[in-house]
Simulated scan of single mutants.
Amino acid sequence: MIEIIQADKFYDKKQALKEVNLTIKDGIVFGLLGHNGAGKSTLIKSLVSAHNLTKGKIKVDGLDLAEHRQAIKQKIGYVPDSPDLFLQLTAMEYWRLMMDIYGVSLEQAMPRMQEYLKIFAMVDDQNTLLSSMSHGMRQKVILIGALTLDPEIWILDEPLTGLDPQSAFELKELIKKHVASGNTVIFSTHILAIAQEVCDELAILKKGEVIYTGSVENLLATQPGKSLETIYLSLTGEEQQVGELDE
């Protein structure tokens, strides 16, 4: 279980998170929704220790992140919102780097890696430089690197961006399988139809504050017959093009 307690984050004088309180149970897909600047990425980067909170606590399975950072990081597989990282490496060099960072041997990881290479149609791209790949291929490299480590918690920031339809379908199936085993997926997306399809519970953020947290089912019940998109726009009070939010 992940607990976010009275979390504040300032960048100089700008407050990006305001007294955020969330409880994310094991065995669910937890969605983070919000417009650009709502605080989603700041919250995710705080969870993966890329940022430190200005105030408040994050606990994972009862351990305080500030005191047990390394142990908690070993539990997390993180896919950032941009795959444009380590472009001078080949795919295999990137995967080996991730294994070294997490202390996972090639022998341990290879059976899982072979499975993901087939799932994401990357068998023939292991020695290709990331700099020569398309955005979607780089996204698949980052996904394989995170999932091969077999972490309990997947934190996926806009993971479907740039994926082809088959790969997007396969990732959604892997997410369902992962939580069915009692694990946790935190999933940020700006595509509300996908959030409605994939997420069990979610939090909606607006200007750094949580304006809704709970199950998708309960949120939909507040306005029967309305889509998640319609309810979301009603709660946030902002107009947006139907179907997809701005990055």
Score class of each variant (00 low, 15 high):
residue 1 M to T: 06
residue 3 E to P: 05
residue 4 I to P: 07
residue 7 A to N: 05
residue 9 K to F: 15
residue 10 F to W: 11
residue 11 Y to H: 03
residue 13 K to L: 14
residue 14 K to P: 10
residue 14 K to L: 07
residue 19 E to Q: 15
residue 20 V to N: 04
residue 20 V to G: 00
residue 21 N to V: 04
residue 21 N to A: 09
residue 22 L to I: 08
residue 23 T to A: 07
residue 24 I to W: 02
residue 26 D to C: 15
residue 26 D to F: 01
residue 29 V to K: 00
residue 31 G to Q: 01
residue 32 L to E: 09
residue 33 L to Q: 09
residue 34 G to F: 09
residue 34 G to C: 03
residue 37 G to R: 10
residue 38 A to G: 15
residue 39 G to Q: 03
residue 40 K to D: 12
residue 40 K to L: 02
residue 41 S to M: 05
residue 43 L to G: 04
residue 44 I to Y: 00
residue 45 K to W: 13
residue 49 S to T: 09
residue 49 S to D: 09
residue 51 H to G: 11
residue 51 H to I: 12
residue 56 G to I: 10
residue 57 K to D: 11
residue 59 K to H: 15
residue 69 R to E: 15
residue 73 K to M: 12
residue 74 Q to C: 05
residue 75 K to Q: 08
residue 75 K to M: 07
residue 77 G to W: 04
residue 77 G to V: 05
residue 77 G to Y: 05
residue 82 S to K: 10
residue 82 S to N: 07
residue 86 F to M: 15
residue 86 F to V: 10
residue 88 Q to F: 09
residue 92 M to T: 02
residue 94 Y to V: 04
residue 95 W to V: 08
residue 96 R to K: 08
residue 99 M to N: 15
residue 100 D to H: 15
residue 100 D to E: 15
residue 101 I to H: 03
residue 102 Y to K: 07
residue 106 L to I: 10
residue 108 Q to Y: 08
residue 108 Q to V: 03
residue 112 R to T: 13
residue 113 M to D: 11
residue 114 Q to C: 10
residue 115 E to L: 15
residue 115 E to V: 02
residue 117 L to E: 02
residue 122 M to V: 11
residue 127 N to C: 02
residue 128 T to Q: 11
residue 131 S to A: 15
residue 131 S to N: 08
residue 133 M to K: 10
residue 135 H to C: 00
residue 135 H to D: 08
residue 136 G to R: 04
residue 137 M to T: 10
residue 138 R to D: 14
residue 139 Q to L: 02
residue 141 V to M: 14
residue 141 V to S: 14
residue 142 I to V: 15
residue 145 G to L: 04
residue 146 A to T: 01
residue 148 T to P: 09
residue 151 P to M: 05
residue 152 E to K: 12
residue 152 E to I: 05
residue 153 I to L: 04
residue 153 I to Q: 04
residue 154 W to N: 07
residue 157 D to K: 09
residue 159 P to R: 00
residue 160 L to K: 12
residue 162 G to W: 01
residue 164 D to G: 13
residue 165 P to S: 03
residue 173 E to I: 13
residue 177 K to F: 01
residue 178 H to E: 03
residue 182 G to D: 07
residue 184 T to R: 01
residue 184 T to M: 06
residue 186 I to C: 00
residue 188 S to W: 00
residue 189 T to I: 00
residue 190 H to E: 05
residue 190 H to I: 14
residue 198 V to N: 01
residue 202 L to Q: 03
residue 206 K to V: 13
residue 209 E to T: 08
residue 211 I to K: 05
residue 213 T to W: 02
residue 215 S to F: 06
residue 216 V to L: 05
residue 217 E to I: 13
residue 219 L to G: 11
residue 219 L to P: 03
residue 219 L to W: 00
residue 220 L to K: 14
residue 223 Q to A: 12
residue 224 P to T: 00
residue 224 P to K: 03
residue 225 G to W: 05
residue 225 G to A: 13
residue 226 K to H: 13
residue 227 S to R: 10
residue 228 L to M: 02
residue 229 E to N: 06
residue 229 E to Y: 00
residue 239 E to I: 12
residue 239 E to N: 10
residue 243 G to K: 06
residue 246 D to M: 14
residue 247 E to R: 11
residue 247 E to V: 14
